[in-house]
Design a protein around this nucleic acid. Sequence first.
DNA 1: CTGCTTGATACCTCCAGGGTATGATCCAGC
DNA 2: GCTGGATCATACCCTGGAGGTATCAAGCAG
Lengths: 300, 300
Amino acid sequence: MDLRHLRYFVAVAEEENIGRAAARLHISQPPLTRQIQQLEEELGVTLFIRTPRGMELTQAGELFLAEARNIRALVEQATERTQRAGQGKLGRLDVGIFGSAILDAIPKLLLAFRNRYPDVKVVLHTMTKAEQIEALRQRRITVGFNRMLAPLDDIGVRQVSTEGLLVAVQADHPLAHQPVVRFAELAAHPMILFPTGARPSFIDKVIGWATESGFQPRISQEVGDAVTGVALVASGFGVCLVPDSATTLQFPGVVYRALSDTPPNFFVDLSCIYRKDDQSPLLAAFMEAVDAFRKGDRKR
Amino acid sequence: MDLRHLRYFVAVAEEENIGRAAARLHISQPPLTRQIQQLEEELGVTLFIRTPRGMELTQAGELFLAEARNIRALVEQATERTQRAGQGKLGRLDVGIFGSAILDAIPKLLLAFRNRYPDVKVVLHTMTKAEQIEALRQRRITVGFNRMLAPLDDIGVRQVSTEGLLVAVQADHPLAHQPVVRFAELAAHPMILFPTGARPSFIDKVIGWATESGFQPRISQEVGDAVTGVALVASGFGVCLVPDSATTLQFPGVVYRALSDTPPNFFVDLSCIYRKDDQSPLLAAFMEAVDAFRKGDRKR
DNA sequence: CTGCTTGATACCTCCAGGGTATGATCCAGC
DNA sequence: GCTGGATCATACCCTGGAGGTATCAAGCAG
């Protein structure tokens, strides 16, 4: 049995007349007669009662008509859904993010993407940089977001956004009384650094900037992410360099101050990583969204 | 697209290897490669990633696999159900019955039929003889049950059972004191006759028997069916000739008495009618059940 | 009885599905 | 580093079956 048989059968059942059905199917009458006979023979069931006025469905034929219509609709639906999946418009996208990534760019980006691809289910997984690479290789995620990413043999990197840096200080801290803080002034105060875990990371960047500015930072505490860092600032552990977007964290007793006299490259990138050999249309669609977002972000 | 494509696709997806899939399908590898390519081209979607180790499903392929399996299962189910319908094992059987037909034979017969064909939905419609014939012609019912049926050009008759007759009398009626009543004795008592409606009917049969026995029955009342007749007996309207099976109606104040000295052919038939040109397997199955029932009934 | 409708049959043609042989590529193992 | 054995892809041939035309058979209306 073939989908052709179903198509022909439905046509004959609807027209109740082989000749008209054949015309509708753009074939001649005899082959259609044969196909219906074949179908009946294969099923071993009489589907039509032949009358001098046309073809009339038997009870079994009625049932088969309902089934055939259903199957044909499902086939159509299957092709349509598969095509949409093939264009990256339908499916599931697993995304690796890091602890405090939810602060700025990523929610906006994901929102824009979900707007454009409403039928793609985006699933977020919080994981470290190393876990993300592992998960990418095992195909548990399709893209990962992180900072300080370098391309690998099998892993590509695409920059998403760039952020400037601020210093978070306690509201009654001496530095809080200045509208702008010179970077070198930070040498005098204990600093909270993040993230813990795989190096090199943001920590090394901060140490590098300090060295360039001629001082050795006094490290008061290493913490997992920016959120924890700002929380410790509130508790008086010290000051903490954070990306611009951290200002969305309004901790009581914490203020953010801009920096002057900063070293070159005094900013952090947010990038996303993906498997270089991943040809999936979903990834392509997502990367397109990333690029569109970055352009919009730059202009802003 | 063809069901063949789906079959091939599922095989390749499951084996993750064209060669093995081809072997499983009992074809050689190149045509299978071609069919998969055709399918991908027709859908416009890459379903597999070709690797040196075999075929790996894309995300769209995964989705299509689920759809394809579903469709294939439905096709199988459709053929199976249609075949069962073609054998009269699945479907709907509309049956016309008359008012008091539910007394004896019909429930037993329907029970036996539903036992043997559990997936046939039997729908009962109460209608008169004339309505049944009309409904048969309009295909609203497939069989009808009634008494005193004669075959027509397009309507066939099959006898279901034969019943003897009893007389229903009030418990304090003179005749109630005898164990057996002679038929001619009924001449002295007003009689309740049924059914009203199209003639000839049971009424004419009773009048015929009375004539043969040499008396003219005194008709006290004509009613619609045996149940009403027995109810009127309880109220003292007279006596009423009823089929054996009416004894299942245990009215307070009504007793049933056997008859002696009865005329020949002193019994009533229950028959069923059907369209002579109805080739439906359901009718055939039902008629088989009727014949089986009649045999069992005779032996009893 | 005849003409018009219906579906069924006979026979032909041609394309597409299946076969064999072979190529291109990649990886494992010596 | 090369070779053998996997993988899938390509080239080409052959045959069955889907579709075509012509015609038949049967029932019904006029």
